[in-house]
């Protein structure tokens, strides 16, 4: 019954649509990639990107609202205008840049790393798990290792724990808390690999104005050091800074 009322109210809102209030900017995120973005105990989106996004919106005097979307369809839903920005730990790549626009990076070029159950695990030619359709999966596919693709990051780590894969290849910052809390069960192996051109906010190509607004805000935050503070807060002291 509640929903019926809701729908009726929605119809009313639509009818009175011409009253143009300040547009709300809808911010798309995945909500499954800590510390960038995740769902906290209260069931709300939380993380580095949420805090940063809210600050950017405050500086640009925009009203923002967070929306979660499956990773697989996060770009199609942006270009079809179901939300206006993507902040989901999305690396700036040429392929993506052809379809959407990115602001300058708000997170320095990332490194990806291998994690395995022991130091001598074969991450070069063994079985390596990665999340399907990520730049990490593409990287492994090109190498000598046998790629094992899972739908979620959770499953890729689980695959190493249960021995299905020799190693998992993912963002260093995603793996770090996993390794730290594993109590020595999981360790980093090999050298980190620089992949991707930093993380930026994705926007529609037709939204140049909004892009400039956010670019300005990011520049301001880089200059006054607030972005660095936020990076250290979420990623620790080792994080590259601006």
């Amino acid at each position: 019954m509640k929903l019926h009322l809701a729908t009726a109210a929605a119809a009313l809102t639509l009818a009175a649509s011409a009253v143009s209030a300040q547009d709300v900017i809808r911010m798309g995120t995945e909500g499954a990639y800590p510390p960038y973005n995740f769902i906290n105990d209260a069931g709300e989106v939380d993380g580095f990107e949420i805090e940063l996004g809210n600050e950017l919106c405050a500086r640009a005097e925009l009203e923002c609202e967070w929306v979660t979307n499956e990773w697989d369809s996060i770009i199609p839903n942006l270009v079809s205008s179901n939300y206006d920005t993507i902040m989901a730990g999305m690396s700036i790549t040429d392929e993506r840049d052809e379809v959407i626009d990115f602001t300058q990076d708000y997170y320095p070029p990332t490194e990806s790393a291998y994690v395995a159950a022991s130091e001598d695990a074969d991450w070069e030619t063994g079985v390596v798990a990665a999340q399907a359709t990520t730049i990490q999966a593409a990287h492994v596919a090109e190498g000598d290792a046998a790629l094992l693709e899972f739908a979620t990051p959770e499953e890729t780590v689980a695959a190493v724990r249960n021995g299905e894969a020799d190693a998992v290849f993912a963002d260093y910052d995603f793996l770090k808390p996993v390794v730290e809390s594993s109590g020595g069960e999981l360790v980093f192996v090999g050298e980190p690999v620089p992949l991707g051109g930093g993380i930026g906010m994705g926007l529609r190509e037709s939204d140049a104005e909004l892009k400039d607004t956010f670019d300005e805000a990011i520049t301001a935050m880089k200059e006054d050091g607030t972005l660095n503070e936020m990076l250290v807060k979420w990623f620790g002291d080792e994080i590259g800074q601006y």
Binding site: A141, L147, L148, E149, A151, E155, E164
Partner: peptide, 12 residues
Amino acid sequence: FVSGFPARQQKG
């Protein structure tokens, strides 16, 4: 391949 079973070496 959507749920449970992983795809090996992009064979799906």
